[in-house]
Design a protein around this nucleic acid. Structure first.
Lengths: 121, 121
DNA sequence: CAAAGATACATAACAATCTTATGTATTTCC
DNA sequence: GGAAATACATAAGATTGTTATGTATCTTTG
């Protein structure tokens, strides 16, 4: 059995946008810090998005027209909520489909038959 | 149905070492150019390893003690065959296991149930 | 109530890893 | 004999991440 260590950062590389887009698609709207916590929770700590990676990514997606923002004040503290634009919804779907296809290709290439840690059937 | 386009390069990023190590584990020994062709063939052109990425990676793996080389001359042209060291074999297994675990985590995170493009059962 | 930790944003220096471009040289095919 | 394929290699530039740092507010706890 594995301990629940984080993955080497190389693997996460390239999937961050996909994760953010798909999460926003499911959750409707989220703010940055919330995204880091949600991913950590859903992956049992295996994937931990750093703020240094997330915020620039969110800004880039917004600049590219995939996301739009609303600022909300909780007392004096600001929260920037992000949600998908129409374009962002399409991009989210494309990205997820591409990733799904990619992992099937990799599973074939690496001879991975069944899910590790799962008993099938 | 998808056309057989290449994946956005971001996805491949970080998986190159894993691919190389696992291929060498199965094939015994291979030379650089052969690796690029084999991967292209096995993935129907979806993953195309560029030489600018592969050669530096092979050199790094060799420097790190994962690979060892044998030069062979086919006429006047040289081929550099790579094979795994004992350490390399262990690293290959670790990398593949980690990747397998990673894609399961991602499948859960992205709500991917069954294999895209496959009929299960 | 003061300090520590969590929440919430942001940016900059650095590192890793890839693409694209370039270079050299041999072999094969038409 | 020239184009395409084989076979190696490296360098400039782009992308995307980590680590470090900064600011500020809110909550918990001794």
């Amino acid at each position: 059995m594995y301990l629940c260590l984080m993955y080497t950062s190389e693997l996460i590389k390239g999937t961050l946008k996909t994760i953010v887009l798909e999460l926003l698609k499911k959750q409707g709207r989220m703010y940055g810090y919330e995204i880091t916590q949600k991913v950590k929770e859903l992956t049992a700590g295996k994937i931990q998005i750093t703020e240094g990676a997330l915020y620039p990514t969110l800004h880039a997606l917004e600049k590219n027209g995939e996301l739009e923002t609303e600022k909300e004040y909780m007392g004096k503290r600001v929260r920037k909520y992000y949600k998908l634009t129409e374009q962002g919804k399409n991009t989210a779907t494309e990205r997820v489909n591409e990733f799904a296809d990619f992992i099937e290709t990799m599973r074939f290439l690496l001879d991975l038959q069944t899910k590790s840690g799962h008993v099938q059937g």
